[in-house]
Design a binder for these strands. Structure first.
Lengths: 118, 118
DNA sequence: CAGGATCCAAAAGGATACTG
DNA sequence: CAGTATCCTTTTGGATCCTG
């Protein structure tokens, strides 16, 4: 069972805050976000957990960062990789299932939901 | 954020053991499984957690049971509802993502993986 | 600004035994 | 057979403060 692809994938993305972080990185035109920007927008997350999740997501290849050193203080810019963008599509399937079977939510019926922007 | 469909859906299906249970219920021709049958096949799960998860899944409408009383001792038969079956399709998307981006797994490349049978 | 360190509370889950 | 009950360990994450 531990060798199952679904199991292993869920161990990456099934943790608390992971999906909100991915969605926040997906939102808007600007696809790069700074650490504190994420901390502000992912409401309720603490810096510790955000840091831990970002490391995990980088390790797993869904997120990358680069450190802009032209201006001080340095800023870390996080963005979705191709696999990260692709995972947002899976999240969209989760959302479709939820709206179909469970949650009547007029927000989510709009093409861009204000909660998750997908 | 707590009002987000994705968030709420993940609270239902994101818990440990939930997906293995759903997949076990999906497997094979016989779509009804007894409690101890599930306990045996979902390797490693304890009766307590299995019981808790089955209640959750019934509450959320993904699983139903009926108790056969013609033979004693009584047997509980668990099976996927329509929404439960439909969620398996979401799991298939998760699997596709995993095999595409993360895990080369010859098992999972087959149409029926021996771990999850999807 | 970006994050690491600490300490603590709560939750989740495992082991095991037990019962109608 | 189908769970419940109990106890305990582990994990997780929250709060907060600190630093280069």
């Amino acid at each position: 069972m531990k060798n199952c692809t679904v199991y292993k994938t869920m161990n990456i993305v099934g943790k608390r805050w992971t999906i909100p972080i991915l969605l926040e990185l997906y939102k808007g035109e600007k696809r790069e976000k700074h650490f504190n920007e994420l901390k502000r927008k992912v409401v309720g997350i603490t810096p510790k957990i955000l840091s831990v999740r970002l490391v995990e997501l980088q390790t797993e290849g869904l997120v990358e960062k680069y450190v802009g050193s032209s201006v001080l203080p340095e800023r870390s810019n996080y963005f979705l990789t191709e696999s990260g963008e692709d995972f947002v599509k899976v999240i969209q399937e989760i959302k479709k299932w939820g709206t179909k079977w469970k949650f009547e939510n007029s927000e989510c019926d709009r093409s861009l939901c204000r909660y998750c922007d997908i």
